[in-house]
Design a protein around this nucleic acid. Sequence first.
DNA 1: TTGAAAGCGTTACCAT
DNA 2: ATGGTAACGCTTTCAA
Lengths: 342, 342
Amino acid sequence: MVLTSYHVMKRMSQRDLARMLGVNASTISRALKGENGVSADLRQKILQLAEEHGYRPNPFAMSLRYDTTRTIGVIVPDLAFSHFAHIVKHIEAEARKAGYMCIISDSNEHYETEVACVELLENLHVDGIIMCLSQETVDLSHLTRLKEAHIPVTLFDRTAEVDFPSVTINDIATAKQMTLHLIDGGARNIAFLGGPNHMKQTADRKHGYLEALRERGLPIRKELVRCTYATFNSGLSDTIDLLNLPKPPDAILATYGLLVGSAFQAILSRGLRIPEDIAIAGYVSDWVSEMNRPRVTFIKQNLREIGRQAFRMLYDQMEGGTSVQQLIINAHLEIRDSTRKI
Amino acid sequence: MVLTSYHVMKRMSQRDLARMLGVNASTISRALKGENGVSADLRQKILQLAEEHGYRPNPFAMSLRYDTTRTIGVIVPDLAFSHFAHIVKHIEAEARKAGYMCIISDSNEHYETEVACVELLENLHVDGIIMCLSQETVDLSHLTRLKEAHIPVTLFDRTAEVDFPSVTINDIATAKQMTLHLIDGGARNIAFLGGPNHMKQTADRKHGYLEALRERGLPIRKELVRCTYATFNSGLSDTIDLLNLPKPPDAILATYGLLVGSAFQAILSRGLRIPEDIAIAGYVSDWVSEMNRPRVTFIKQNLREIGRQAFRMLYDQMEGGTSVQQLIINAHLEIRDSTRKI
DNA sequence: TTGAAAGCGTTACCAT
DNA sequence: ATGGTAACGCTTTCAA
């Protein structure tokens, strides 16, 4: 076997300790677990010996016995995005506090990869999975399979229509707020850059956008609504298309950090000014907004809370709770320079 | 294809399959592993039954037997940084290709947390660990302990003086390049913002900075060199201090993305212009440079290659190779607007 | 070609 | 208070 060559020293097992002391393994187990049924004397000796030899329990023996791993899986569409990285960071911190380890996987926004990740995690017998769906994901059979196998799942950000516990922000309301803000700032032709239409998140945000237009009595210009599989390049060409329209938009609402980036690039490289010629608002993180010039008007999300709650919801299920709930964490508009005509 | 109702109850084990077919478990094992010693007939039946019932090997039984987990640990100082998130993403991708899962932990730049992470991973019997040291880490006993336990380790970015395989960029050369670029752009009083002095990375970058000054015959102004535990706030106050000097710097070289951010904020909020009043260059990712206005002159690192190579080096060790090597991946200067006087 | 049994580390149960 | 044994899932002898 590959491993044996460098694992020269073997770990101390309870059985080893038992042999050393000439007692039975079950006695060692009792002593180590702090159960009664061991004389104070013997327990003392056992604990000391274990300490001396650096005894560590073997988690695989435990997993094998109890079919629980105290490990959860986390699947994100793209770990390189600051948004997801932040959330993962907080999931990990929360999980560690509760004694769980995290296996992080990256679907790269691809359905096939996502399915493969789920399968791997399933094989690993993780106790539960927290995930954000890829943009490509339409078929949810990998999720329903998890449900059938009684493996707890919690979704965040991008959820499904099927019933799964989920943590999201108030997408409709925030998109509406942002759109109203743009309108009140003088915008009359607001473009909407979103992900694919099948995503509930996109649908919700578009809903909010349309509601705002309706509320202010503005016409819906279909050619200003761009919902496709979102990449930096798709955002770039969509924005260029928009700028080439006979009547180009005077504001852009981008539902995805990536799209804000490409919109910025397309606009600035054409020599237009933000916000004087065209305003931009979008769903980016505080940090991205801050680093950008002009600073981007954005929806401030509590990423720590999203991560924490996602883990808590998963934890509740792992502990036996079964109630399906949708948790909505309120986010709100933060106005910066990209929509403020100076 | 019928992995439904059976999945609901319990996982299929080889023993279960054996009972169903009225054969011995060892026969199932042989058949499933493609070993000879099973009639073609029986093997066929076994494979089909396994398929039908969605049999999946139990990794814990394997781990228990072989003391190998096909899991590696990854520890970063802050997953929320785009730099680390990118590297982790590529480590994960490479590991998955090789059939390894990743346990990601975040030390939050704290020594205690880092030690705790190492301990957890050790207990989990990961086959190896890839890590970037926290800023606080001076004592390396947790690493030498891993070495003694024959658990392969590979460091990246921030390495130690002790002999561990590592992947870094050419820190001295890139810092020198950047400094020369600033000088050649007219800067005469270049400040250096770094991490703590005990970090080899900081030492190397400072080395390159000083070498450039020497080469161009510029005096070293000690009050312009700020090396402390780097946080956004420390960077902020350091920059403010620098700006308050009787003879403030006309350029800043920041060795850490965070410090670039705080320097930007301090400078801009004082109403100074970049690069007209003060130039900035630093170690940020392409993406951060691009999002920023003005775009930041930076050292372009191949984060994918760093992640890939870090995993390869760990893999080699896990496969039995023992050679300690230091791999240096060349990065280079990318000039943008933050140092270009227009 | 197939079966039986032991062992990996741990614990629950029953016996002493 | 302690020992013995079986069990978790799988593989590896060795025996039939």
